[in-house]
Amino acid sequence: MNRRFENRLTIVWLALSAITLGQLALGERAPLTPNAIVTASAVIIALVKVRVIVREFMEVRHAPALLGRATDLWLVATGVSLLGSYFVGRLAWG
C-alpha cells in the first residue's frame, strides 16, 4: 500500500479519535443543565469530524468541486438548522 497515503489515513484516524476523547472530557465536566456553550461546541466539533471523514476517508478532497460544494452545503445547512433551532427554541421556550 502506498506508504504516504496510508500514513495520512492513520493521522486522520488518530486525530478523529483524539477529538472524540476530548468530547468525553466535555461531556463529563458539563453538568446536566441547559448550556449553550457545551451544545454549540458539541455540534461544531461533530460537524468538523464529519467534514474530515467526508474529505479524507471518503476522498471528496480529490473529487470534482461540485461534490465538495454539495457536501459542504449539507454541513452548513445542518449546522444552521441545529444551532438555529436550539437558540431560537431557547429564546422561545427556555
Partner: peptide
C-alpha cells in the same frame, strides 16, 4: 454510517 453516528452521538450524549 460512521458520520451519521458522529452526529447522533453529539446530540444524544453530549449536548445540553
Amino acid at each position: 454510517i460512521d458520520f451519521l453516528w458522529v452526529l447522533i452521538f453529539a446530540l444524544l450524549y453530549v449536548m445540553r
